[in-house]
């Protein structure tokens, strides 16, 4: 077997890196998630605290990941998955009789942050985020 010279090894490495960068599916970036947050809040940066986001630490199957959000006094809660092909997951709205909590099951394409943004009834915004490790992705990959 022919040994690679340092120059060839570097060239091969660079080519592989370029391929990896171009060959990845178009996943949403953290920027897209940030844009979705801003679209929801109308450009106001959400504060911390007041939102309880319950997610598993490790999800064996990214196809169904149980997620629970609760925020006392919230009128609506937006749930985002920052690493999915599109960051939006669900938006919950609560009526006067409703209690500001909801639990559902979501898809996660890979290990990523799940973000919950609550719109409080006084018009302010609160945010919480959790990292979920995903063993098998849930978007048909």
């Amino acid at each position: 077997m022919k040994t690679l010279t340092r120059r060839e090894a570097l060239a091969a490495g660079a080519a592989a890196a370029a391929f990896a960068a171009s060959g990845l599916p178009a996943f949403a970036t953290a920027d897209a998630a940030q844009e979705a947050v801003m679209a929801f809040t109308g450009g106001v940066a959400p504060g911390e605290g007041g939102v309880t986001l319950t997610t598993p630490e490790i999800a064996e199957n990214g196809g169904t990941v149980p997620v629970e959000v609760a925020a006392e006094g919230a009128a609506a809660i937006l749930v985002l998955a920052a690493g999915n092909p599109s960051p939006g997951v669900a938006t919950f709205h609560f009526g006067p009789l409703g209690v500001a909590m909801a639990s559902t099951r979501i898809r996660l394409a890979r290990t990523q942050d799940v973000i919950a943004v609550a719109k409080m009834s006084d018009g302010s915004f609160r945010q919480a985020s959790n990292t979920v490790k995903v063993t098998i992705g849930g978007c048909g990959g």
Binding site: A90, T91, G95, G98, A102, T104
Partner: peptide, 20 residues
């Protein structure tokens, strides 16, 4: 009277489940 509503995106799992 509206109690609970949700806008769903494709990232919600098959057989959508909600608890409220």
């Amino acid at each position: 009277a509206m109690v609970f509503a949700c806008d769903l995106e494709p990232s919600v799992s098959a057989n959508p489940y909600f608890e409220f």
